[in-house]
């Protein structure tokens, strides 16, 4: 999916209206980076050596600072070092609020042979970038994804899904997640996706992958989810109607009693913008019978049941 907004602008956009979470979390944060100067008597008790009464407090502080400078891939691996490291990394993951998965041209974010710009880190083998901030995780997968990339994204989603409160997904990613939750093998789903691309947008719109089995999930993939935004270009609305094909209900994605907002964001493509992938064109960006796709999606997501918690947003 071609992206119209640079990711940094996107992060700014996500921040709008969500500051209450930040302020809540900041208010609960009481630790101070440096210890206050203590009287000599008290200071005598604070040993740094191995005979320290409470060495972990200091060590955690330093490690936490070290982790601030680690790449997200390294950070996730740190959990394997020992219990203390695991706890520190887990604490960071627990403080996540926003999780965004974007499909776009990676070169728009990082130059082809650049491994990192300090914000986004390139995966060693897959066409994927990862950003892990204090409150947000962003996964970016390349427009021209491979079968391996599909699996990597799916596992990345599973890693961050238990912690996210506000999730924004490009519509192709939403379809990938639903396929991942279904009984369909992701390699087969990827082959289907390639076929849809190959036959072209006009014929591809009517192609559906039917799943015979219905999946009844024990737990929702995003157990803490409060806001779900699915972002789509008009040309990708067919993905929306395909979500209903996999035998996966929205209950498998989020807790219906907990969700506060399901937002469908349809991004209209300005005619002047030509950031389309090589295989698409302005002509192809039109979808036949968009209302039909929207109707199927709304029925699947249960827009009637969600009532005012379902919103459809059009933006440029």
């Amino acid at each position: 999916m071609p992206s119209l907004l640079p990711l940094k602008t996107l992060a700014d956009y996500f921040d709008a209206g969500k500051r209450k979470y930040n302020s809540l979390v900041s208010a609960s944060k009481k630790s101070k980076r440096f210890p206050k100067f203590k009287s000599r008597k008290n200071r005598e008790l604070t040993q740094i050596s191995s005979t320290d009464e409470n060495p972990l407090l200091l060590t955690e502080e330093i490690w936490s600072m070290v982790f601030d400078h680690c790449s997200p891939f390294d950070l996730l691996k740190m959990r394997q070092v020992n219990r203390n490291f695991k706890k520190l990394v887990q604490r960071r993951l627990n403080s996540l609020i926003y999780f965004d998965v974007v499909k776009c041209d990676l070169n728009e974010i990082l130059a082809e042979n650049q491994l990192s710009d300090g914000e986004f880190y390139r995966h060693s083998k897959s066409n994927l970038l990862l950003h892990l901030g204090e409150r947000s995780a962003i996964v970016v997968v390349d427009d021209r994804w491979s079968s391996r990339d599909v699996y990597t994204v799916w596992h990345a989603v599973q890693t961050f899904s238990p912690y996210a409160h506000c999730v924004t997904l490009d519509v192709q990613i939403a379809e990938l997640i639903i396929a991942g939750l279904s009984t369909v093998k992701l390699s087969r789903w990827y082959a289907f996706e390639c076929y849809v691309q190959a036959v072209g947008s006009t014929s591809g719109q009517e192609l559906h992958m039917k799943c015979s089995k219905t999946v009844v999930a024990k737990n929702a993939l995003f157990p803490k989810l409060r806001e779900l935004t699915i972002r789509s270009f008009p040309s990708d609305l067919t993905c929306l109607s395909r979500l209903a094909d996999y035998g996966v209900s929205p209950d498998s994605v989020y807790n219906i009693n907990q969700i506060e907002l399901v937002r469908l964001n349809i991004v209209e493509m300005p005619t002047s913008v030509s950031r389309l992938s090589s295989f698409t064109s302005i002509e192809a960006s039109r979808t036949k019978r968009p209302q039909k796709h929207l109707r199927i999606f709304k029925r699947w997501i249960g827009a009637d049941l969600l009532k005012e918690r379902y919103a459809q947003q059009y933006s440029q």
Partner: peptide, 27 residues
């Protein structure tokens, strides 16, 4: 662990679980 002399106090089960969730980091 070797570099900083950190003790490995994770059980094999815990390590296997983390390895399983981390596998995508090294695909």
């Amino acid at each position: 662990r070797e570099m900083f002399g950190i003790e490995d106090d994770l059980t094999e089960e815990e390590k296997a679980e983390i390895r399983r969730t981390n596998v995508w980091c090294t695909y």
